[in-house]
């Protein structure tokens, strides 16, 4: 067992240890969520509550030559949310430091 890990033996342990905590979720389609994690399964289907969703949209008209177009950010809140696992890219638990 690698001593640098804190009792994590498989990646899902990271998620298990984050239950009831606020997590950051990165989704396909430039979406990000933060919310309280209530449940998950092996597909990474998630149930989150008290969710804030952030959607990043690059304005193609303003896109300059460096490819760093103006990014429009939209936010919205949801009370309770089911996230289908196949859209999940990354889940980051709160820092355990």
């Amino acid at each position: 067992m690698d001593p640098s890990t804190t009792g994590i033996q498989e990646p899902f342990d990271l998620i298990r240890l984050s239950l009831s905590e606020r997590v950051f979720v990165k989704l396909r389609g430039d979406r990000e969520l933060t919310g309280i994690l209530h449940a998950y399964d092996g597909h990474m289907n998630l149930i989150l509550s008290d969710v804030e969703e952030t959607i990043m949209m690059v304005d193609p008209v303003d896109e300059n030559f460096e490819g760093q177009g103006t990014v429009k950010v939209a936010k919205r809140k949801m009370e309770m949310l089911f996230v289908r696992g196949d859209g999940v890219i990354l889940v980051s638990p709160p820092s355990r430091t």
Binding site: F24, D86, I89, V91
Partner: peptide, 10 residues
């Protein structure tokens, strides 16, 4: 991120 879980299909 302190810790990050990355879904394998990506």
């Amino acid at each position: 991120y302190g810790d990050a879980f990355i879904r394998g299909n990506n």
